[in-house]
């Protein structure tokens, strides 16, 4: 018997309160080993209000994400105006640490996009310019790095439990606020998408290891200094990066369409038929629109109202909600699985 104290304390020292943090740290371990405390098992939460699959796609200027506006309560379409795209972090030379969200119609990029030629320079940028003039040419590379590191944009698309999503937003907001506070005072480098991804996957993995997961699948897209990043994280802490991503239902329905479009464009580029290897903005958006349509037709937990996030070096643009033209006439004559006539 592990437990000689009768109410579930595995390490007697930590329960005596000798260490300030001892209780919390010990708790999860005890719960796991004893299968719950004193008979009341810590019930692992299950998803309640959920969002269905989300998509991510790498394209010429950066990353596009897509998610519909539905938060379901079981099979009930409960909340039909939920935004599941979360522009988490945006930092540029012109407006350090600012997250932009245009409310204008689809396809309008953030107006706050930095234009190096005529936009007013920030204090730190002027400082950096001054410094670089005084320094050796061999330090140029370093300065360049410093200057570039202030353009960074990261956005999430979240599937799964919506309250866990809100919790995630809260803690990520905390991290971002802290970073932003530092980045306004000096040349503090901007958070890269990779760094936010690493942080987020640590949070997710830590929670799964406490047997108390955050019930989500997240697609994180970002662009830093023109370099794009697209990664997946889920409730198990499983991570992977790929040029096309899809969660849940979409990993079966949309992922093949995304891969087909991506690979065909790549092949066309390699054959020299088109410039570059990546989909253009218009092409990428058309692919995502089509995927969302396919998902709406076949995923019963989806809604024909969705948004697309476009992350480029210039910023994050979250489109207004949009819908696809759908065609249901074919269903009129359908009986059973097809062959029946009446």
């Amino acid at each position: 018997m592990y437990n000689s104290h009768g109410h579930g304390h595995f390490y007697s020292r930590s329960s005596s309160g000798e260490y300030g943090y001892g209780y919390d740290v010990g708790q999860a371990g005890r719960d796991f080993l004893n299968g719950g405390m004193g008979g009341e098992k810590q019930v692992t939460q299950q998803p309640l209000v959920t969002g269905t699959s989300v998509l991510g796609l790498k394209y010429a200027d950066g990353i596009m994400l897509a998610a519909d506006n539905l938060a379901s309560y079981g099979s009930l379409a409960r909340f039909k105006d939920i935004q599941r795209l979360y522009p988490l972090y945006s930092s540029s030379a012109a407006h350090p640490g600012q997250t932009s969200q245009s409310t204008a119609g689809a396809g309008v990029l953030s107006e706050s996009a930095p234009n190096p030629s005529n936009s007013a320079k920030t204090e730190s940028e002027v400082m950096a310019d001054k410094e670089s003039k005084e320094k050796d040419p061999k330090d140029e590379k370093k300065d360049e790095k410093k200057a570039q590191s202030r353009s960074s944009h990261t956005c999430l698309a979240v599937a799964g439990d919506m309250s866990d999503f809100q919790y995630l937003k809260k803690i990520l907001e905390g991290v971002v606020t802290k970073e932003r506070a530092q980045s306004t005072t000096d040349a503090h480098p901007a958070l890269a998408p990779e760094q936010i991804y690493e942080y987020l996957s640590n949070v997710m993995y830590a929670r799964r290891s406490k047997m108390n997961p955050l019930w989500n699948a997240i697609v994180l897209g970002g662009v830093k200094d023109g370099k794009s990043f697209l990664g997946y994280i889920d409730l198990l802490g499983t991570t992977y990066q790929a040029p096309t991503l899809a969660t849940g239902f979409a990993s079966h329905f949309a992922q093949p369409l995304l891969r087909e479009a991506y690979e065909e464009r790549e092949a066309a580029g390699k054959r020299g038929e088109k410039e570059g290897l990546l989909l253009s903005r218009e092409e990428a958006e058309a692919v995502l629109d089509n995927c969302m349509k396919v998902l709406f037709y076949r995923d019963a937990r989806s809604l024909n109202k969705y948004q697309i996030a476009t992350i480029t070096d210039a910023g994050i643009d979250i489109s207004a909600s949009r819908e696809n033209q759908t065609e249901w006439k074919f269903a009129e004559g359908l009986r059973g699985y097809g062959p029946q006539k009446q």
Binding site: Q46, G74, S75, R208, M211, P213, L236
Partner: peptide, 14 residues
């Protein structure tokens, strides 16, 4: 109310 799905969280995958 969605029916209570009583399955334990499996922390592993392959």
């Amino acid at each position: 109310m969605p029916e209570a799905i009583q399955h334990r969280f499996d922390p592993y995958s392959s």
